[in-house]
Amino acid sequence: MSFWSITLFLWEGFRISLLIFAVTLLVGIPLGLPISFCSMSRVRPIRCAAKVFVWIIRGVPLMLQIFIIYYVPGLVFNYQLFGRVDKYFLLNYGIQDAGRIVAVLIAFAINYACYFSEIYRGGIESISKGQYEAGQVLGMTKKQIFFKVVLLQVIKRIVPPMSNEIITLIKDTALANCIMVAELIKQANTLAATKALIWPLFYTGVFYLLFVGILTVLLGRLEKKLSYFSS
């Protein structure tokens, strides 16, 4: 196999990695909000439930969570949900791994939403009470205070920790390997197993590095854009 065809073969895998990355952010970033609100709720049972949930999700390896999501429907309900989705998409559309990818996406979205929720909570709680009170005294509604006064300050504070999580995420996509989703590392493993080629495995690092490089630049720009004020 030529270098180019191996690159293309790995790229097929990296597209799956990027899909996991994008969907996790698209779902996890908004999903983190209600979780963080629940974990700050004044209603104790809601707050406790949210905290326990976040504790479990953050306390258990993501790989284990992928296994649980993937295998539990079959084990508990005797219904191979994701396997059937796999088969359905393969037969009807010729798409590989659809069910497995969905299981991975669910696990990733929930897991990252919990991490994001803690970052949001930290950001929201770091805004001084005085900002809310200044808004109140000026006759603003709670909603106006949140959206017009607090939100941008929170965003500014959470950009650095969110950047860390986002950069971790692209590398975490390799965990999808554990239920045989053909992401980047899995593709390289396939080459090792079928063509006895080890070097493509190391070559995958270039994909991650390039992507992390792009992310770093973009997130750095965002951070810089918000540096016009300090609070």
């Binding site: 001084s128 005085g130 900002q131 009170e133 200044a134 808004g135 109140q136 005294v137 000026l138 006759g139 603003m140 017009k148 006064v149 941008l152 300050q153 500014k156 004020f229 300090s230 609070s231």
Partner: peptide
């Protein structure tokens, strides 16, 4: 509340807005 104004010890200006925007926002 609008009948009263309050100036705080530590100002509590809105940092992301310019001086003029701080005045006009509410």
């Amino acid at each position: 509340r609008l009948r009263f104004g309050l100036v705080f010890q530590n100002f509590n200006l809105f940092p992301q807005y310019t001086v003029f925007e701080n005045l006009c926002l509410a």
